[in-house]
Design a protein around this nucleic acid. Structure first.
Lengths: 206, 206
DNA sequence: CTAAACTGACCGGGTAGTCGGTCTATTATC
DNA sequence: GATAATAGACCGACTACCCGGTCAGTTTAG
């Protein structure tokens, strides 16, 4: 096997990006492999050389997009500063990231729906959610340690916060006109921060 | 035209329920009209007598399910009592409702994704979200009036809360094992209530 | 008798996937 | 350093299947 310079990574990226573009315009199920092929500037055989099926291609794209989204989040968040400030940075990350990738967000939604059915997709999305929650959990922990926040179960709190952002994104994707993303995410962050600073409610019965 | 007793409503329900069952098992796009036909105990022609196309059938089902979900929410919520208690009722409504309709939730997710593309579906989902937010807004308003909550923009606050519940549902649908729905929704509600009781953060720059 | 309600065999368009063939860089051989 | 051999990378016409939708006919209630 004579080794030529390996172009498989470039090719895969090329195909994945073509797929992302087509999916965002036409949706997951209305997009055809032929369209992706055309956009990728390869041929049918070429695309199928790197991805055995449409499902496999989709799964790979989910993986890539989840990793990318997390990366953006981390980037904004690693700016540092006190915990509350980081929350606000995260808030910005959310709003900016979403807006920047607004076209991709509808595809992400389709991926979420797919995750409930396809094990490979589910694994990727699951990991994304877990990582997202992990990230938030770190903040909550730091806030509690520094005394800025009152004690609570950091994991559950982080889950709530992550859910809040995911939910806001969902509402916005479905009806962008009804929601001012920046305003609402700021408000949401403020609400959560206030709740974290307040004393925990008496947990009766549990 | 000899008027026979109108069975169209029953038939439509019959078909819609068949569709819901099939969709929840096989997903929106992998479900075929033939499957729905079989399940509905009608014939192809019969189904197409009431719904002109698969899209129309889907749209009708979205409408029905959104209305149903809202109905459940309203039911739990109309129990009355002080505002905080209603929040907890809403929390229960969320957890119970979701769990009861867990099979349907994956379909709902697919509908959300569809809403970003199909105008008819979008209209239904939009209305559902708006109604949901409206409901929460009422609570927030009441809480503020009664002095239980500190003043804030009730609409935005309600949006945050609705987003929180939608997001929690999303996380749970994708990864039920990772989240204790009841525990988390209780925690989330507690967090929000704490935030609402606390004083609003100084809204600089607004 | 009428027309709405319903049947199910059939069809045609669209699409994921295939496959025999081609091209090109590398290596082996003389 | 020319020629042949090799195999990975890529091409695109073709296909088989699937599935939404149709329609000519049948049943049934009034």
């Amino acid at each position: 096997m004579p080794p030529r310079p390996d172009v498989s990574e470039e090719r895969k990226v090329q195909i994945l990006e073509a797929a992302a573009a087509v999916f965002s315009r036409r949706g997951l199920h209305d997009s055809t492999m032929d369209e992706i092929v055309e956009r990728s500037a390869l041929s049918k055989g070429g695309v199928y050389w790197y991805f055995k099926s449409k499902d496999e291609l989709v799964a790979a794209l989910v993986d890539r997009m989840c990793a990318g989204a997390l990366h953006i989040l981390e980037h904004f968040v690693k700016l540092g500063g006190p915990v509350a400030q980081r929350f606000i940075a995260m808030d910005r990350a959310m709003a900016d990231g979403i807006r920047q990738l607004s076209k991709m967000r509808t595809v992400m939604l389709e991926f979420y729906a797919l995750a409930a059915r396809d094990p490979a997709v589910r694994a990727s999305v699951r990991k994304y959610f877990q990582d997202e929650i992990d990230l938030v959990e770190q903040f909550v922990r730091q806030g509690i340690e520094s005394g800025e926040f009152c004690p609570s179960d950091p994991r559950k709190t982080a889950t709530s916060i992550a859910a809040l952002y995911e939910g806001l994104t969902l509402l916005w994707v479905v009806d962008p006109a009804a929601i001012d993303l920046e305003e609402n995410s700021r408000q949401a962050t403020a609400l959560v921060l206030a709740g974290l600073r307040a004393s925990p409610p008496p947990s009766r019965k549990g």
